[in-house]
Design a protein around this nucleic acid. Structure first.
Lengths: 332, 332
DNA sequence: CAACGCATTGCAACCGATTGCAAGTCCGAT
DNA sequence: ATCGGACTTGCAATCGGTTGCAATGCGTTG
């Protein structure tokens, strides 16, 4: 059915090796042979079978992209950036949607079956052990948005979530909020835990602050909204750090239900600075996470690993910064 | 490096064929051999190389998923559904992000290089000829969200955009809007054209209606907002059909800038019924497109094609329905 | 006990490419 | 005219599996 090396070789009147060589960078072929082959290839509409060649070269240019976050709009930006960045380098994203899986075994097996050159775990909720499983199975891996560590077991690219937690607490305090709350993502998400830890660290340095906390069921609008509705039934705090912009937006929706004005009646600070947070109707004060740089850097790292699979694990942590908008009252 | 058939065969003391056969459904192996092989395989942590086997079987279970719409939040839902549906059937999504490409040649070549079993073009903007290019190159293809036709050249799954345009016009008229407008997606998007056509068809049946139209630069929040800001400078219509929810949401943001209340001062009806449209702060009256059914049906169709590549092309068109929320005034 | 039939097994060719090696070609230099 | 060296080229083995075919072994039957 499909046109193969052999067909081209036959038409061009050369050996199969000659054809192979005209299609591989830096191989030794005369101009004459090359042009004969190219002519024949064009005539037949030949393009080399990447999978067959992977057998001998050991490279597929396939990169597993594993994620479990298909409900947070920020991930549309993430996918866009990742697929672009990979494509620009001639790499092909093979997607794994974890849905509710938290065990790496299946993904590891599947990606090994397809001989991916490397894997990217794009998730702020999965523990380091998840990414480690790929490493242990011999699949080079980068954990993007993973838990930062001073001595990581696998490559990690992302932000310092603990520091972000501190930053949020500092901001709330700087604006005179006394009774403050943390409204985090799922309790078992590493990012939710780390942000919480940093938040509490900072709070505890200032005994005057009164603190409460709760965890939403997911990083999603609905979860944020529901959690805030629940909080509003009791005795809500004056200002909240929501562990993610989409939670914040859910929370804002709950506030509006109760006729409360964000930034005036209740303070909200998010994290991510996603596109939507800039919308006038949202106008969320938030901590900016440099998504684009993180992703570019992740893919750079993937390329480095392809060159040197033994590369010593590295953590690339990017700084975050406050984006002042309308959901926190001004600094005192 | 990796464990191969041969290693397992050696350890189990059988031939390579025997190992291969224990891993292929319905092959003839005795229980004794099978258990020996399984034991050896487990011991070595063997799992078959899907790419190598694809060489002889001609099946990779790789499905190309091609899209150009990474800025419309609806596509997060789309990707989630697609990746899930494919995985459930043991198929693997290989993503192609078209960014700004509109020529199929590159994608076709790439997907052929990776011997995908089939391709799904998920786009409401690309013309039928785009999907046809895959078909012509011998890659079975389904065009999801593609232009519907009575005699399609390739499989199409989606909605009748012309009818949606009519429906929108009918609704605006039924609510007493006289000066109405179409605010569509990009001029060259098939969905934008078709919705416009239906809209105009219906309008022309009622000479009392005064109509205007314009096309946004993209299916995105920013584009919708900008277009509406531009319209508000002149002499805006009383009610608009926005070609997509995300355009509508952009438009709503522009209205709010001008202190205009949707549903009261200006009517807006969208199309898609994405998650966000249900948010209280949005509360968009819109035409629901049954995304989930469309995607499930698309993947079903892919499976059918794998069984019978010569399958006669088919259009599966799903009905849409109005979702009444707050951005259109009540029916007269 | 021999012959038969069937399930199981291994051999070897093949899928579409790459690559080390040895043979062949071409050229200029002596 | 001869030689040496640098390029080209094709052969054949290989990557990790699959599969048609023939051989083997087994139990059963007459």
């Amino acid at each position: 059915m499909a046109v193969t090396l052999k067909d081209v070789a036959a038409l061009a009147g050369v050996s199969r090796s000659a054809v192979s060589r005209t299609f591989t960078e830096g191989a030794s072929v005369s101009a004459k042979t090359r042009s004969k082959v190219e002519k024949a290839a064009k005539e037949l509409g030949y393009s080399p079978n990447a999978l067959a060649s992977s057998l001998t070269t050991g490279r597929t240019k396939l990169i597993g992209l594993i994620s479990n976050n298909f409900h947070n709009p920020i991930f549309l930006e993430v996918f866009d950036q990742f697929t672009r960045a990979l494509q620009e380098r001639g790499l092909r994203p093979l997607i794994v949607n974890l849905t509710d899986e938290t065990e790496p075994a299946n993904s590891v097996r599947m990606l090994r079956q397809y001989s991916v050159d490397a894997a990217i775990v794009a998730s702020s909720t999965l523990p380091p052990s998840f990414a480690k499983a790929f490493h242990d199975a011999g699949v080079p891996v980068v954990h993007t948005f993973g838990r930062s560590a001073t001595s990581p077991e696998v490559h990690v690219v992302g932000i310092d979530n603990v520091e972000c937690g501190r930053m949020a607490a500092r901001e709330l305090r700087a604006r005179g909020y006394k009774r403050i709350g943390y409204l985090g993502g799922p309790k078992d998400a590493t990012s939710a835990m780390d942000r919480f830890r940093g938040f509490m660290e900072e709070v505890e340095r200032h005994p005057v602050l009164e603190v409460s906390h709760s965890f939403a069921g997911a990083y999603s609008f609905e979860a944020g909204r529901e959690e805030m509705l629940r909080l509003l039934k009791d005795d809500p705090a004056e200002g909240y750090f929501c562990g993610d912009d989409i939670l914040s937006i859910g929370a804002l929706s709950a506030l509006s239900d109760h006729g409360l004005k964000p930034g005036k009646d209740v303070g909200i600070i998010g994290l991510n600075d996603m596109e939507m947070s800039r919308w006038e109707s949202v106008n969320l004060t938030t901590i900016h996470q440099p998504i684009k740089q993180i992703i570019t850097s992740s893919v750079d790292l993937v390329e480095e690993m392809l060159k040197d699979p033994q590369r010593y694990p590295e953590a690339r942590i990017f700084p975050c910064r406050l984006i002042e908008r309308g959901t926190l009252r001004p600094r005192l």
